[in-house]
């Protein structure tokens, strides 16, 4: 379990807090979507968790252990993150070289490395591309390679920071399919950062952020029902939700209910 307790953070040049007294509990094996507009603090939250940003107030507890500078490196081994732009994450000049980068840094023996690289690429259906140049792949393929690079570390927690926002619908679908498979296979905890409400369907739990604060959290259906909170958080409602709002008295209708109504 990951717990954020009263977390507050402010960027050096900023007037306002990027995170303002955030308290959250994320369960092991759960797919949690963190949703919010640009600048709502969702990326800041994971950057603090990964130890990229420090000097925060409050406490982060991972598996019962409070995150400190001393245990950051050992705890971080349980986490892996995939960022928005895969082109800025690649170090290796072939797919397999890049996937192996994290293992090399952790001093994993070569024989084990070969097996793990192969398994990670297989999981995201990119094994046939192992000798390809990452920069020459499609957007969805690049992001799947980046996910393999994260997955190869056997993380307990996989964080995706707007990992599909630069992709076309096909690439987005490819990445989400891979993630579903990973989540189903290993029960990896997934923290999925997005500003697209239509993408949170597949998650178990969702957290809505606005201006550095959590304004709503709960099961996805509960989040969908709270249309006012979603609208106030400056998020664009998916077409079905906007339609259901227009057709009803403003309350939430599930996809099936909407189809039946239409």
């Amino acid at each position: 379990m990951i717990e954020f307790k009263n977390l507050t953070f402010k960027y050096r040049a900023a007037d306002e807090n990027a995170l303002d007294h955030i308290s959250l509990s994320l369960k092991q094996g759960q797919w949690t979507s963190v949703i919010g507009h640009n600048g709502s603090g969702k990326s800041t939250l994971v950057k603090i968790l990964m130890g990229v940003l420090t000097s925060y107030e409050g406490e982060i507890v991972v598996g019962g252990e409070t995150l400190t500078e001393e245990n950051l490196l050992s705890l971080r081994k349980n986490f892996a993150i995939v960022f928005q732009n895969p082109d800025n994450q690649f170090v290796g000049s072939t797919v397999e070289d890049d996937v192996a980068f994290g293992l090399e840094n952790n001093g994993v023996e070569r024989e084990e490395m070969v097996e793990r690289v192969e398994a990670a690429l297989d999981t995201v259906n990119m094994l046939d591309f192992r000798t390809h140049e990452p920069s020459r792949l499609s957007g969805g393929q690049k992001q799947r390679v980046a996910i393999a690079g994260a997955l190869v570390m056997n993380p307990d927690v996989l964080i995706l920071d707007e990992a599909t926002s630069m992709l076309d619908p096909k690439g987005k679908r490819e990445v989400l399919e891979s993630l579903k498979r990973i989540h189903g296979m290993k029960e990896t905890t997934i923290i999925y950062i997005t500003h697209d409400l239509a993408e949170i369907d597949i998650s178990d739990y969702a957290v809505v952020m606005k201006d550095g604060q959590v304004i709503s959290q709960g099961d996805v259906e509960d989040i969908y029902k709270d249309i006012d909170a979603l609208e106030s958080s400056r998020l664009v409602l998916p077409f079905t939700m906007a339609m259901s709002k227009a057709l009803s008295d403003g309350s939430y209708m599930s996809y099936d209910e909407l189809v039946a109504r239409l």
Binding site: G51, A80, N88, V91, E104, N105, N106, R110
Partner: peptide, 27 residues
């Protein structure tokens, strides 16, 4: 510069800390 910064963060979170303790995929 933005790319360089993002790459540095990506390398750091993938455990890169210079040469110490590194192994090599390519033999």
């Amino acid at each position: 510069f933005k790319r360089a910064e993002e790459l540095a963060v990506a390398m750091e979170v993938r455990g890169y800390q210079g040469e110490a303790g590194r192994t090599s995929y390519r033999v």
